[in-house]
Design a binder for these strands. Structure first.
Length: 953
DNA sequence: CTGCTTTATATGACTTTGTTCGAA
DNA sequence: CTTCGAACTTTGTCATATAAAGCA
């Protein structure tokens, strides 16, 4: 028996073991697949970013590159034991030696394996590929993984693996954390811009004639032009491999050398404006990790590399971080020679791209190190900047990504060249369409050249990189604009003033979306995305839940509005920043105040207060207006989830237009309604849950037909008419409702529903005059007292593919509440007493059983003297159990047995007492044990001869 | 030939009101 | 005899994402 037990438990445990290890391996596989792909990316100069999105733990690893390889190693070791999957894993790990085009193949492989784990695990190794005999050399040659498509790989290409809820949650968390980090970074930069030393140094550099600008009272955007031009001519974006201690020192260095990252240059411009007593903000696109899981999985997301090796903030400023990695990465990633070469070529190309926005200006002054690697492509656009730096690469092997990149670069350059020239001299907004058309044409031309020069075809649909995107700029408050004053976009890096409409296009050209544009000032921040984003419906789904974001920004907004008011303030009332938060009448006082302010700098502090508050609220209004006056999208799909507009055809089953109008416009013939007319409909029962009921006279506004389930019912029941009425779902809208009015409880009778119960979704669902008593077994009391009650259903449980109601307590009339509580207390007391009595009785009976068996045994022993007390039989030793059981010896049999019972697991009764001298402690060594398999009785023996028999269950 | 629209398909999310049998 | 509780079992529908086809 024991043997059987043992083997059984072994099989059981091995069963669970197998399951456990399978789970473990699956997990490892998943992780290693990520690691391997990231490992590959390291070598390609790409990134570990995907890990950020897939596994929380890996976030840690991705934070420093050096760990990654170690981790990979560990995984490898760990996986070594799992025979079946190992090969695949190793193989996929080796994939980083393969060419970059293998992404999808690899994914296919991993996905397949993941899916098969459930069913095929026990069937032995999956020899899809035969990697065992493959020599490392072969792998090093960059042989692509080939497999014979054993499963017929449905659909041919990459199997789409949908993100699970877990993935989404994780992605959202990463997104949020990233946002917070970027906000923090922005505040850091903002406060560095306030540094008086830096501001003073900037002022000292400024030519005298430009200093006068601070005396202009009603500053306009145009008035800023000479200042911005000067700044642009004197400060340049550059690749810099600096190991910066803090941003402030970085900024100081940038100031000293007149060059720095776009971030630094933009920050310097903000500092300059502030030093001239302008109200200026540092504005940044927060280029966060995607909210959707694996959204940029197939992008060659080089930006992610920056997140790892460089700062998180400078995600899209490739040049800086790539260079950094190449030159100063503390733990250079292992790269095979060929890869390395490639990598370098690529990164230099990237770095060139990073500066593209400012290339035009920089080419004037040849400090720019940004060499173009491919004369052909760029020369069309910017002949001056192209110099052959890495000619080999450009002639020889070109990969899809490179071509793509070069095209984008060219595009960006062309876009910049147009914008820059036109904007400096003329800040009107009329030439948008012209500008937009030019890059496209260029692209086409370039593409033609490229495809001609490179025999291999390529797809322009390939993932594109975020290169050279404008990410940082300044906003200066110009009182001279718009009567009331206005925040003016000033991109000193690219010498663009008042080009807020161009930001979106420029960013889009670089595949950066304006999900979050945040302005930093006064240690606070404000979301100004709406100023720059024209197509809100496109970015809205890419942003976090707005309540979360608003709550995060709320305190920062306060600071910001204080800061933007405070900067411009005259120093007479320095302590006023904190008291700026009361909003006074928005528009009128604002205009007055601005006029007053414009006339003279000495203004009364109260007026200033209102002015400041108004400035902030004016901006709010401006942004709000933009939000509400978004142009109608031209494609229908945009209306699907548009926040402002709706098309009837995109409504869901449970939606309706009420009232149906006004019609705001037409989109390919379909009338466009305001989204506010869209009402969500619910069934009577659904509304009940919210404590609402349908007004007596109302008829369902929409009736849906239910299908499959009731067709079956019809077949079985053959009662068509009745079911037909059942087959519809009657929906009602909000406007048809009134607060729930349940029949009042009268005469102690609880009004119940058709099931004889009360659905307690919330307090509102309780009929008036009743209470919900949530106590276990309380219904017994009510029944005993003959009080009318209804079981309270509180929800559903999904069991066996079926919904089962959950009951909790009862609903009774209020007047019985106290009586029930009283009776319940009594009842519980009684029950507890009974329970106690029962347990005691049970204990006594068990003692009785035990003792009588002991006595019986003893009688038998004394009767048949010859039978020995110890019965050695089988010799099975259980090494696992080594018991030292101290047994108080006593002639009274009760105590030791009790003791033994307590000390031995699974013991039901014991026998065989030998009187011993007092004080001896029995020691039961494992080697003295024996086990009778037939009766499953274990006999333990002390050195003194005392033995004890234990029946194992 | 590109880009938009439609359609098909797959998946995730959400839905949600029993029966039978055996032990106490 | 009644009562209680556990086991059984895998539901349908809608929204959404994606690919592919269709179309201008």
């Amino acid at each position: 028996m024991r043997n059987r037990n043992k083997s059984k438990s072994q099989t059981q445990s091995s069963g669970t073991l197998a399951r456990k290890s399978q789970e473990g391996v699956n997990k490892l596989l998943r992780r290693s697949s990520r690691l391997s792909s990231s490992g590959k990316k390291e070598q390609d100069g790409f990134s570990l970013e995907n890990d950020l999105k897939t596994n929380g733990k890996e976030v840690v690893h991705t934070m420093d590159v050096c760990n990654a390889s170690t981790v990979e190693g560990c995984h490898r070791d760990a996986i070594e034991n799992s025979q079946a999957k190992e090969q695949e894993v190793l193989h996929s790990m080796d994939a980083h030696n393969a060419s970059p085009g293998d992404d999808c193949h690899k994914d296919t492989l991993l996905d397949d394996s993941e899916e098969m784990n459930d069913s095929d695990w026990e069937d032995g190794p999956l020899l899809k590929l035969d990697p065992v005999n493959r020599s490392p050399n072969e792998q090093m040659k960059g042989i692509t993984i080939e497999f014979d498509e054993p499963s017929g790989s449905t659909g041919g290409r990459k199997p789409v693996r949908r993100a699970s809820a877990e993935d989404k949650e994780l992605a959202e968390l990463v997104h949020k954390v990233h946002l917070l980090c970027l906000l923090a970074r922005g505040r850091l930069i903002d406060s560095a811009c306030d540094d008086s030393l830096i501001q003073a140094s900037l002022l000292s550099l400024l030519p005298t004639h430009l200093l006068k600008i601070s005396e202009v009272s009603n500053i306009t955007a145009n008035a800023l032009t000479p200042l911005v031009t000067w700044f642009h001519d004197n400060f340049h974006v550059r690749n810099l491999a600096r190991v910066e201690r803090s941003f402030r020192t970085a900024l100081a260095t940038a100031l000293e050398t007149h060059e720095g990252t776009p971030e630094e240059i933009a920050a310097l411009s903000v500092a300059l404006f502030r030093s001239l007593r302008f109200t200026a903000r540092f504005v940044s696109i927060l280029d966060v990790a995607s909210l959707k899981p694996e959204a940029d999985k197939y992008e060659p997301s080089n930006q992610a590399a920056e997140r790892v090796s460089g700062g998180i903030f400078s995600t899209s400023t490739l040049m800086v971080d790539n260079l950094k990695r190449d030159s100063i990465a503390p733990f250079p990633v292992q790269t095979s020679p060929c890869n390395k070469k490639d990598d370098r070529g690529k990164s230099s190309r990237k770095s060139k791209g990073g500066c593209s926005m400012s290339n035009v200006a920089q080419s004037r002054d040849s400090t720019s190190v940004n060499e173009s690697t491919d004369g052909k492509s760029t020369s069309q656009v910017q002949p001056d900047t192209s110099r052959q730096c890495v000619p080999k690469n450009s002639q020889g092997l070109k990969r899809k990504g490179d071509l793509e990149f070069e095209m984008q670069l060219a595009m960006a350059i062309s876009a910049t060249s147009v914008e820059t020239h036109e904007n400096i001299h003329d800040s009107s907004d009329g030439n948008n369409s012209l500008e937009a058309s030019i890059p496209t044409k260029r692209w086409k031309r370039i593409e033609r050249v490229e495809s001609a020069s490179c025999s291999q075809g390529f797809s322009t649909a390939l993932g594109s990189r975020k290169v050279g995107s404008p990410l940082f700029w300044a906003e200066v408050y110009c009182d001279g604009e718009n009567l009331t004053g206005k925040w003016v976009h000033v991109d000193a890096v690219n010498a663009i003033i008042d080009g807020e409409q161009k930001v979106e296009d420029a960013a889009a050209a670089c595949k950066t979306s304006l999900r979050y544009v945040v302005a930093f000032a006064g240690h606070g921040a404000k979301d100004v995305t709406r100023r720059y984003c024209m197509k809100w419906y496109k970015i809205a789904p890419k942003r976090v839940n707005s309540t979360w974001w608003d709550s995060v920004l709320a305190p920062l907004r306060q600071l910001e509005s204080g800061g933007t008011g405070g900067t411009i303030k005259v120093s007479e009332h320095p302590g006023e920043n904190s008291s700026l938060n009361h909003v006074i009448l928005p528009e009128k006082s604002g205009q007055e105040a601005s006029k007053e302010y414009g006339s003279k700098i000495e203004v009364e502090s109260s007026v200033k207060d209102s002015f400041v508050a108004t400035r902030n609220s004016l901006e709010d209004m401006e942004l709000e207006t933009r939000a509400l006056t978004e142009p109608l999208p031209t494609n229908q799909q945009a209306y699907k989830n548009h926040a402002l507009y709706a098309l009837e055809r995109w409504l869901t089953k449970y939606q309706i237009l009420h009232p149906k109008g006004p019609i705001l416009g037409f989109c390919s013939g379909h009338p466009v309604y305001p989204r506010s007319c869209v009402q969500t409909l619910k069934t009577r029962e659904r509304w009940l849950r919210e404590g609402l009921q349908i007004k007596g006279t109302e008829t369902p506004v929409k009736v849906l037909e239910q299908s499959t389930k009731l067709k079956k019912a019809r077949v079985s029941e053959d009662v068509c008419d009745e079911i037909d009425s059942k087959e519809t779902i009657e929906l009602y809208g909000k406007w048809q409702l009134e607060p729930l009015l349940l029949p009042r409880a009268v005469n102690g009778i609880v009004p119940k529903n058709e099931r004889g119960q009360v659905d307690v979704w919330s307090e509102k669902c309780l009929p008036p005059g009743t209470v919900h008593i949530r106590l276990p077994r309380v219904f017994v009391v009510a029944k005993r007292l003959e009080i009318d009650y209804a079981p309270a259903m509180v929800g559903f449980e999904f069991r066996n593919g079926r919904a089962v109601p959950i009951y909790d307590g009862i609903v009774v009339c209020t007047e019985f509440k106290d009586a029930i509580f009283e009776a319940y207390a009594e009842e519980e007391e009684r029950r507890a007493a009974e329970e106690k009595k029962r347990t005691e009785a049970q204990a006594i009976s068990r003692w009785y059983q035990l003792l009588s068996s002991v006595i019986t045994r003893q009688k038998l022993n004394s009767y048949y003297r010859d039978s020995s007390s110890s019965q050695p039989s089988g010799n099975i030793q259980d090494k696992n159990i080594e018991t030292k059981t101290p047994v108080q010896s006593s002639k009274d049999s009760k105590q030791p047995t009790a003791h033994r019972k307590a000390n031995n697991q699974d013991t039901t009764h014991t026998t065989s007492l030998v009187a011993l001298e007092v004080g001896h402690e029995h020691v039961f060594l494992t080697k003295n044990e024996s086990f009778d398999a037939e009766n499953s009785i274990r006999t333990k023996q002390c050195e003194c001869g005392f033995s004890i028999q234990v029946e194992e269950l």
